[in-house]
């Protein structure tokens, strides 16, 4: 199993991240939202017709610490391209994902490798994102039932806490997921995943709300696994443009090698 994990770690690298982050709808401030609407908002926060941007990913593990600068493009849910800009040693390494297929370009040896699709179904491990975060096609609203479990002030913020219980037949490993959003604009603060015994398994923290064009978003996202408290992955968005026109050859093997 570790074999698979490591491979994913190595290769799927950032393939799906794009899916999670880019794009969002303009925020409709004011009116009170139902728990489902809150979750939909969180889900849609980073989604859009297309996106292009730059981000830095800082990964801390027990053995190493590194920082990657990445440029990404995405279109819909199906297509994404990620290229490493820094560090120098890995510059030009790129990953293309179209639907279920995934390719990697390795500039050092000037070769493209196609990943067996079975590899993608494993979790993504070099950082602390799981595959669910990366290529998940279902939306929270479809897999969970929700209730607001807290509304009020906590640590100086007015917040709403939504607890999500997976539907009995949903393909979800968690016991429950607790999402906390700001009362004022429903931007997420954190998201805590509990396992089936309702022990905390993983925490995602959203911070540093910033603005990219029309959208206000948390620009830093941190994942901390509960069983390894000294490890974390931090993603910082530096630039991002939504809903732009991308030339059709953006997601081709040719552009992968460029």
């Amino acid at each position: 199993m570790d074999l698979r994990k490591t491979i994913i770690a190595t290769l799927c690298v950032i393939a799906g991240l794009v899916l999670v982050f880019p794009s969002a709808q303009p925020v409709r401030c004011g009116g009170k939202l139902s728990p489902k609407e809150i979750l939909d908002r969180v889900d849609d926060l980073f989604r859009g017709i297309s996106s292009h941007g730059r981000m830095t990913m800082k990964i801390t593990t027990a053995h190493w610490k590194r920082s990657l600068t990445l440029e990404f493009w995405s279109e819909g849910k199906e297509k994404s391209l990620i290229r490493i800009l820094a560090p120098k040693k890995e510059k030009g390494t790129a990953t293309l994902r179209v639907g279920n297929d995934m390719w990697n370009y390795l500039p050092k040896v000037k070769r493209i490798i196609k990943l067996p699709s079975s590899m993608m179904s494993a979790s993504w491990m070099g950082s602390h994102f799981t595959n669910d975060d990366l290529v998940k096609e279902s939306r929270m609203a479809e897999d969970y039932t929700f209730e607001v479990t807290f509304e009020g002030e906590r640590e100086g913020h007015k917040i709403v806490e939504v607890t999500c219980h997976p539907k009995p037949d949903a393909a979800v490993v968690w016991g429950k997921v607790v999402v906390t959003v700001r009362r004022v604009d429903y931007l997420p603060l954190n998201c805590i995943y509990y396992d089936e015994d309702l022990y905390r398994a993983r925490t995602m923290i959203f911070s540093k709300i910033g603005r990219f064009g029309e959208r206000r978003l948390p620009t830093v996202m941190t994942v901390v696994p509960e069983d390894k408290p000294n490890e974390k992955t931090e993603v910082v968005y530096e630039e991002m443009t939504f809903d732009l026109d991308l030339p059709p050859q953006t997601f081709s093997l040719r552009s992968l090698q460029r």
């Binding site: 079975s118 179904s121 979800v172």
Partner: peptide
């Protein structure tokens, strides 16, 4: 009695998950 999710590729090569 505990949950487990199985992820695999179906006969068409599509990624599928079942609880």
């Amino acid at each position: 009695g505990k949950k487990m999710v199985i992820a695999t590729n179906d006969v068409n090569g599509m990624l599928v998950e079942e609880l």
